[in-house]
Design a protein around this nucleic acid. Structure first.
Lengths: 409, 409
DNA sequence: ATAATTTGTTAATATTTTTATAAAACAAGT
DNA sequence: ACTTGTTTTATAAAAATATTAACAAATTAT
């Protein structure tokens, strides 16, 4: 099993020179990961060092096969600088994108390009069988990918739930852990690779911030509307986890004191109104009550109605579906405006299945924000729909994995 | 008028050596401000430098009169180290603590000890006269203090409202600015001192974090219950401002869709239920409706009832007052649990006038948090009543001023 | 009193930055 | 088309700075 080094002890024993060098090395690697390629001069500037020092460090990293040259830049004016970037040869990250209705195994190279993908019919369930099944499916997928086992550098897992970021254990789905071993340990031991677990919405906001619409912004919220509602938070340019890793739990704040009982045991949670599951339930109820709608066509197999059908109906102009989406958007917008008042972000990104509904969901959200937010908060705020889509999450997993990995070098 | 240097330009022109030196100097000063006194060895360790380097820097700062020696430490084992600290001689910070019902001029030395204090009957009002009056009162107070004008190093102002932290302008009280000059510029020009403005609740949480109950904690919320409700936020050990400085605006999230109209124009804001003003209004209404209470004694001059009387009645066991406080605490706790879900803090500190009500306000808050928060959030969370009291805010102003000031050295 | 421990300072060593210079690329004018 | 001047990068040598190691001074424990 892979054991991460007890860096605290090591750090404190290091000499001052070693410490500074280690900081510089990490800085170079982080910069190269973010900017794809860079010149010695650029690196020197952003790391506040001289060019000869950076030349030294980069040379060392080239010798250690972490960095390699990527030709020369063109166009400028003077002599063309040599470009350096992370050595992407034979290094792959495995992302396990777990949701409550399916799981995707995605293999990416160091440039975050997807080189293999397999969707498996395995939804997250709170029982020990899940971990076994996941392990088996993952093994199969990796074999199928034909990538040599030694070329994998780490496994990143994203899933819904409250994930304690220090240990990587999911507190919402406690029973997926086997024999007192958290899921991450189990997988780490099986594949002999470092494993990092991150909440799905946090992964999404990471992707959007570093390589999506929120690039360069300091304070970002990403709301993920899927089988549940989650909020990913970037503050001061970094992912915000909170004390235990639970920050951004928007789904279980009370929106309706007289609302439904939530699976969490509380009443009227945002989740009970806006999650895909309750959306479907509301449509079913409406149809049973005789609402006129295109969706009435599914009356004889009403339990098969899914979120895509509802969105499709709305896009085709179905009033009932549009109403339902409007209601959901309004409540979401109200919840979001609480977060806007507390975080004062520059940009809010809407993500998840419902983005397919486009304006039918963004309009009511925008309207609700106008209604419930003070104008000072709205003035500097833009609300955008994700352009990266599901890739945002995978890229986010990749970023999280690499951030952790490069921090140990 | 004092003009702050355009540091961005300077920084970029600086050589690498100068930049690094400047970082070290600021590090030493910040460390000395926080820890009162420190040894060369301690400074070297926390700044990741060698002792001779730190000796150099400290020597320089001593020559420039920023730092001075504070005798030697005692007790340890070997040779006694020389203690260094900020040179506190003849350096005073003026804090203007502005609230909606009065204003306090507080003069502190660099060790944050109050050496002069004057309360003036000037409540924050949204009109240009306020700035004039504040200026006049401040001038009087500073004269009265007998401190030599040249010994003031900066003025810090705390007040309620949405304060744009980049410019120091208060967006909630826009009319206090004179002739297109923000209040801070006005005061800066009058006294020829740098002026820094911070929201009152943010000042409070700064004080609590660096020198109060939240010392050493990473993620802290401080809720200030006064003439309005505000939330001060420390994240990753630093004050969190948000994109424009408005973060933590808890008072204007909607708690009751059928509630009262708020002065902000929206309906059912937390403020309309929990602020001292509405608390008093509810007591008056109750008395008029004939509720039995010790407060009935004030029936003939009902408009003079203030928050202290209500709290006193509760402490004496008056059921009506206790009920009112319980209701308020419950709503506050509910609002607070939203913030807890979003920020996942380690500690929540309760501050403001109502802390005098002690358990009559903390009990319902705690109960509401139990009711509305998921257990995972509550487990690592402690809720405490401020011990610094009003001093937290002044200390917070001092910290804010010194942080800004030392950053320019 | 002696050993052990920690600090402060000096000198030697190591590292980094700066300066200087050569090399490479481009633009423009003859 | 070719030379000249400008701009930028890369590297080597010189200068500056920081770290380490060594040792003396100061203090406490035994």
């Amino acid at each position: 099993m892979y054991v991460s080094p007890p860096d605290e002890e090591i750090e404190s024993k290091k000499s001052v020179v070693d410490y500074k060098k280690s900081v510089s090395r990490r800085g170079v690697l982080a910069e190269l990961y973010q900017s794809e390629v860079s010149t010695l001069a650029q690196l020197a500037k952003s790391l506040h060092s001289s060019v000869p020092s950076i030349t030294n460090i980069v040379e060392e990293l080239v010798n250690e096969k972490w960095v390699s040259t990527f030709g020369t830049a063109v166009g400028n004016h003077g002599r063309r600088p040599v470009l350096f970037g992370l050595n992407v040869q034979d290094k792959y990250v495995v992302a396990l994108d777990i949701s409550t209705h399916d799981t995707k195994v995605v293999i990416m190279n160091l440039q975050r390009e997807v080189i293999f993908r397999k969707d498996i019919k395995l939804g997250l369930e709170d029982n020990p069988r899940f971990a076994k099944a996941l392990l088996e499916f993952t093994r199969q997928a990796l074999e199928e990918s034909q990538v040599e086992a030694s070329h994998f550098v780490a496994i990143g897992i994203s899933m819904p739930g409250l994930i304690q970021f220090q240990t990587g254990t999911n507190m919402t789905y406690r029973r997926i852990n086997q024999e007192e071993k958290p899921l991450s340990t189990l997988i780490s031991e099986e594949f002999n690779l470092p494993v990092f677990v991150i909440n799905d919405t946090k992964a999404t906001v990471l992707g959007e911030h570093r390589f999506g619409l929120a690039r360069g912004k300091k304070h970002v919220l990403a709301i993920n509307i899927d089988w549940g509602v989650g909020l990913g938070i970037i503050l001061n340019g970094e992912i915000f986890q909170g004390a235990s890793g639970f920050a951004g739990e928007l789904g279980h704040i009370q929106m309706d004191p007289d609302g439904e009982l939530c699976h969490c045991g509380k009443v009227g949670c945002l989740d009970t109104i806006t999650s895909a599951r309750s959306l479907i339930r509301r449509v079913q109820r409406g149809l049973n009550e005789g609402r006129v709608s295109k969706l009435s066509a599914y009356m004889d197999h009403i339990e098969d109605i899914d979120i895509e059908m509802i969105i499709e109906a709305a896009l085709e102009g179905d009033a009932f579906a549009i109403d339902i989406l409007f209601d959901v958007g309004t409540v979401l917008g109200k919840g979001l405006s609480m977060a806007v008042h507390l975080f004062n972000p520059e940009i809010v990104i809407v993500d998840g299945i419902v983005v397919k509904a486009d304006q039918f969901i963004t309009n009511p959200i925008g309207q609700a924000i106008n209604k419930y937010c003070l104008s000072d908060f709205r003035n500097d705020l833009s609300i955008e729909i994700s352009q990266l889509g599901e890739r945002a999450k995978w890229i986010g997993i990749h970023i999280y994995v690499m951030d952790q990995l490069l921090a140990t070098i």
